[in-house]
Design a protein around this nucleic acid. Structure first.
Lengths: 118, 118
DNA sequence: CACTATCCATAATA
DNA sequence: TATTATGGATAGTG
């Protein structure tokens, strides 16, 4: 009469490409939701502005922006323009980013905006 | 003689702005790391391309890109250009994004790219 | 086909 | 160590 557990619970999966297309899609979908939720928490609790753009395994575009796509994108492009009230942020543009291909890139406190270019 | 619990365990924090500047910044740092890790998992396990740009409470810019900032940003700007091998992605630009201010925005399956068909 | 949703037990995390 | 996110299986939406 031992009641079988209905599921095996969350499994630990290796940090490597998920081969099965269906599993990959499912995982992508769930994790994207989780990522958005985290991003939203960051917005609500820490008052940050954030933009996320990603492409599904099937190469469809998805994104999350706060406060608006334009504001985030404009600043990724033009550090000079003012962002939202909560973010007068310094400058940072694609050219200033450390392009550590495939690795986490961080722009640690960009001094200031040269107003033109560096 | 009841043994005090060593820690209060994970605390549940309300979905509202964290007032204490220090707590807020600490939380921001931790969660940013968590967000990057999740983004990286998405890259490794689902093989997707992704870009994240956020601005901290202290107004510093941070970002995570894969494969490179240029590739992601160029595509957010110019849907026509080809992205990485794994991402021939369809088109999507700021103008195509639903600007649901402060809310999750999703670009649901952009039709197609002028150049490549499906 | 390309996701998105739901259950439950458990891995991950705050 | 309490709270969440999510894997695996399966079902549903467009």
């Amino acid at each position: 009469m031992d009641k079988e557990k209905k599921t095996a619970g969350r499994q630990s999966i290796p940090l490597e490409r998920i081969e099965g297309p269906e599993d990959r899609y499912t995982t992508f979908s769930k994790r994207r939701s989780g990522l958005y939720k985290k991003a939203n928490n960051l917005v609500e609790e820490c008052g940050v502005d954030i933009g996320i753009a990603l492409f599904s395994p099937a190469v469809n575009p998805f994104s999350f922006f706060h406060p608006t796509p334009n504001l985030i994108l404009d600043h990724v492009e033009n550090p000079n323009i003012e962002l939202s009230e909560s973010t007068k942020l310094a400058a940072y543009a694609r050219n200033n980013v450390n392009q550590t291909n495939n690795t986490i890139n961080e722009i640690v406190s960009q001094p200031e905006i040269p107003s033109s270019g560096s």
